[in-house]
Nucleic acid binder design. Structure first.
Length: 235
DNA sequence: TGCCATGTTAAACT
DNA sequence: GAGTTTAACATGGC
C-alpha cells in the first residue's frame, strides 16, 4: 500500500468523503507529506493530522478507481492528481505524539528492525507459547497468522513450544525467519503467487513427510495453527 | 448456502 | 480501576 500510494506524496487533498466516524474533513486542503508503516498499519501524514489505516481482515484500497456508490467506502481522498479509496478498514486520526509512542524497531520489514531487541522481549516472557509470541505486534509487528504458521514449519518448531524452552539457536532462528519469511511473503504477494507458496497454512499434508497435518486453534490468541507432528519439535 | 477466517478495537462484563 | 471476554466490523473462499 505504501508503495502504491507514493504518487500522492507531495499532493494536496482537495476533498474527502466516506463513512469514517472521525472528523475526516480536517484533511481538506492539507498536503500529504509522508507515508509511514508500522506492521499492518499505514500512516498518511498530512502534517498535523495523521490518518492511521488498518485493513483488518477484509479491508481494501484502490487508486484512481471509477467512483461507484458503495456503502462500505470508508474514505475517499481526491487529490490534485488522482484519488485514493479505502474500504471496510479501521481508520483513525492521530497526531504526531502518537507516532512517538510507536516502537519502530519492532517492525519486521523495517530498516530499523532490531533482532536483539526482539530477543530481549522474548526473554521476558518465557512461559508464552511461540504461536502467541509470533503474533505479538509489540515484538513482531507485521507478522500475522499465515506467517506464524509458515515460520514455525520452516524452523521445525511445534507451535505450543514455550519461548523459554527454545534452545538459543532455535530462538535465533525464530527471530531471523520472522523477518526473512515476511520479505518472501511481501515479494510473493506482489507477484500474486502467495497462496502457491504456503507449505502448511490451510494445507492437509506435510510437504516433507506426507503425513496429515494437525490443525488446531492454539494459545491465548486461539488462532489456527497448522503443523506436522513429525517435522516440528515440541520444546 | 452457511460457515469460517489473513485482525484489531472498543464496549461490556467481572 | 484493573483485567478479561465479547461484539463489531464486513467480505470472499470453500
Amino acid at each position: 500500500m505504501k508503495e502504491n500510494l507514493q504518487e500522492f506524496v507531495g499532493q494536496k487533498a482537495i476533498s474527502v468523503r466516506g463513512n469514517a466516524k472521525t472528523d475526516i474533513e480536517i484533511l481538506e486542503g492539507k498536503k500529504l507529506r509522508k507515508i509511514k508503516t508500522f506492521g499492518k498499519q499505514t500512516y498518511l501524514i498530512f502534517g498535523k493530522p495523521i490518518v492511521r489505516i488498518h485493513l483488518l481482515m477484509f479491508g481494501s484500497y484502490s487508486v484512481n478507481e471509477q467512483t461507484k456508490p458503495d456503502k462500505s467506502l470508508r474514505l475517499e481522498i481526491v487529490f490534485e492528481k488522482g484519488k485514493i479509496y479505502f474500504y471496510s478498514c479501521s481508520l483513525k486520526i492521530v497526531d504526531e505524539n502518537f507516532l512517538k509512542t510507536i516502537p519502530w524497531e519492532a517492525d519486521v520489514l523495517s530498516d530499523e528492525w532490531k533482532p536483539k531487541k526482539a530477543k530481549e522481549k522474548l526473554k521476558e516472557i518465557p512461559e508464552t507459547l511461540v504461536c502467541d509470541a509470533l503474533l505479538n505486534q509489540d515484538i513482531f509487528a507485521g507478522v500475522g497468522n499465515i506467517i506464524k504458521n509458515e515460520v514455525l514449519f520452516r524452523i521445525g518448531v511445534q507451535p505450543e513450544s514455550k519461548v523459554g524452552h527454545l534452545p538459543e539457536k532455535k530462538l535465533n532462528e525464530l527471530i531471523r525467519e520472522a523477518r526473512n519469511y515476511s520479505f518472501d511473503f511481501l515479494k510473493w504477494k506482489k507477484e500474486f503467487v502467495l497462496k502457491k507458496h504456503w507449505l502448511v497454512h490451510n494445507k492437509k499434508f506435510c510437504p516433507k513427510c506426507g503425513e496429515k497435518l494437525i490443525r488446531k486453534h492454539l494459545g491465548e490468541t486461539h488462532r489456527r495453527s497448522f503443523y506436522c507432528e513429525n517435522d516440528q519439535n515440541l520444546y
